[in-house]
């Protein structure tokens, strides 16, 4: 089974993308999409990516909901910063160095995507030797607060899912 279907999740998502693109769920479309999806999964397996272990899928919907809420909230915040008239500029932006405990590459990738996708924070660099990441924050008030947010809000929950 592992040999025929090396990455079942990839096969499933490729098939889904194909069905959405061709806008039909007829047997022909499913068959062609299935063949293409399995070929795609084989191609992916030949890249020998590190294996992902999804431990607690049940925590995923809650996480996605929180990401969505955070995106809407920070969209509002960043829009306010941009549209604020110039002059009384007391806002400070800067880099924060955050030590991370997570080592799983997929978990780190997910964390990077979440942090960069929310307006106002951009993941800049990661040092794999001592596990610290560099975050740029648009509205930086307190460095320790950001370390706490990243570790408590995102890293802990991603570690539950990926490690």
């Amino acid at each position: 089974m592992r040999y025929i279907l090396p990455h079942p999740l990839i096969v499933l998502s490729l098939l889904l993308a194909w069905l959405l693109l061709s806008e039909s769920a007829s047997p022909g479309a499913v068959l062609l999409g299935g063949v293409l999806a399995i070929a795609g999964a084989w191609a992916f397996a030949s890249l020998t990516p590190p294996r992902a272990r999804l431990r607690r899928l049940a925590a995923l919907p809650g996480l996605l909901r929180d990401v969505l809420v955070e995106v809407v909230r920070s969209n509002n915040a960043v829009a306010r910063i941009i549209l604020k008239p110039a002059g009384g500029a007391t806002r400070r932006s800067g880099f924060v160095c955050i030590p991370l405990d997570m080592r799983d590459p997929y978990g780190l990738a997910a964390l990077a995507c979440i942090l960069t996708a929310t307006p106002g924070t951009v993941w800049v660099d990661y040092d794999s030797a001592d596990g610290t990441m560099l975050l740029h924050v648009l509205d930086l008030v307190d460095e320790a607060e950001w370390v706490r947010i990243v570790k408590e809000k995102w890293e802990r929950r991603l570690m539950e899912i990926f490690e």
Binding site: V78, A79, S93, F95, T118, P119, G120, T121, H136
Partner: peptide, 20 residues
């Protein structure tokens, strides 16, 4: 924001509004 913000690292944040 891409026009108004001062440094490059500040401007990186601006297009995320449109892309999210």
């Amino acid at each position: 924001g891409l026009l108004r913000l001062q440094s490059f690292y500040e401007r990186v944040h601006a297009p995320t509004l449109g892309t999210t």
